[in-house]
Amino acid sequence: MPHTALLQPSSWSTADQLQPTPAPAVHDWLFNEDSLTRRLTALSADAFSVTPLNEGWDTLRSDECAALGVAEGSQGWVREVYLRGHGEPWVFARSVAARSALEGSGLALDQLGSHSLGELLFSDRAFDRGALQACHYPAAWLPAAVRTDGLWARRSCFSRGPLGVLVAEVFLPAFWPAAGIQG
């Protein structure tokens, strides 16, 4: 299998660039600017949870370096989790921040555990959210247990001064029926 740093998504696109345009209900989940954590909590009638998969310092992917405006091959904090509804993995989330900006920022990503990063970012008014982008996420970038081609993903960068936290969220197959949307 090729090294994941070499793989690129078809392209991350903003809502007005995305072609073909997904169904309106899918488009709403991809480009809604509200907290995804809050929307999933409501959809699951408060049966929402976060399961950390792995986190730590690692080399960021090329697309992540470009989005964060750091040099190719930069080190960063990488956090991968499942966002679950009723125990089912609905969303795979990968959040990254460049080491150069994270160290000394006061943001303790390593202490989140099973808490939602989204809640932290949305509750801190110092963070500004950049434009939402979407793509079909490369299957090779997903955990083996949910590796599927063609899954919709979205990402945005939350910034506070020099710190950028890039958050990518991939909607897994179990999510769409739970949301009442045809797959």
Rank of each mutant, 00 (worst) to 15 (best):
A101V: 03
E80L: 03
R94E: 02
G56R: 09
G69I: 05
V91F: 05
D46R: 12
A71M: 09
W57E: 14
D46K: 05
C65N: 08
Y82D: 01
S95F: 10
F48Q: 00
L117A: 10
D63Y: 05
E88C: 07
T51S: 12
A47D: 15
G104R: 12
A98D: 08
T59Q: 13
L117I: 08
R84F: 00
F122G: 02
R125V: 05
R84G: 01
Y82V: 05
V50M: 01
V78G: 04
L109F: 07
S116F: 05
N54S: 11
R125S: 14
W57F: 07
S105H: 12
N54C: 06
A97I: 07
S44G: 07
W90S: 01
G106H: 11
N54A: 10
L117R: 06
R79P: 04
G85Q: 10
A97R: 12
P89F: 09
P89Y: 11
L117D: 00
R125E: 11
P52G: 04
S114E: 03
D110E: 15
L60Y: 02
Q75I: 08
R84I: 01
A66Y: 03
L117H: 09
A66E: 13
A101I: 03
E119Q: 14
A97Y: 08
G76I: 09
L83V: 08
C65M: 09
V91D: 00
R94W: 05
R61L: 14
S49V: 03
N54E: 13
A71L: 11
F122Q: 06
T51P: 00
E119S: 10
S44V: 07
A45G: 03
Q111P: 01
D63L: 03
V70G: 08
L112C: 10
D124S: 11
H86Q: 14
F92V: 10
A108L: 13
S44W: 02
A71W: 01
A71N: 11
G69H: 12
G87D: 07
L107V: 15
G87L: 07
A71E: 13
A67K: 08
D110P: 00
L112Q: 13
L120W: 06
A101D: 13
S62W: 02
G113Y: 09
S123F: 02
L121T: 03
F122V: 05
P52V: 01
L120F: 09
E55N: 10
F48I: 02
E88W: 03
A101K: 04
R61M: 12
E64Y: 11
W77C: 06
D46W: 04
A67Q: 13
R61P: 00
R84N: 15
V50L: 02
R84K: 14
E80T: 12
S62R: 14
S62Y: 07
G76P: 01
E55H: 14
S95M: 09
S74N: 06
R125N: 12
A67H: 02
T51A: 12
E103Q: 14
L120H: 13
E72M: 10
A67E: 00
G56C: 09
L120T: 14
G85T: 08
A101Q: 15
V70H: 09
G85E: 06
V78R: 11
V50P: 00
G73R: 15
L112M: 13
G113F: 11
Q75V: 07
W57Y: 07
R125W: 04
H115P: 00
R61Y: 11
S123R: 15
Y82L: 04
A47N: 15
E88D: 14
V78A: 08
F48T: 01
E103F: 04
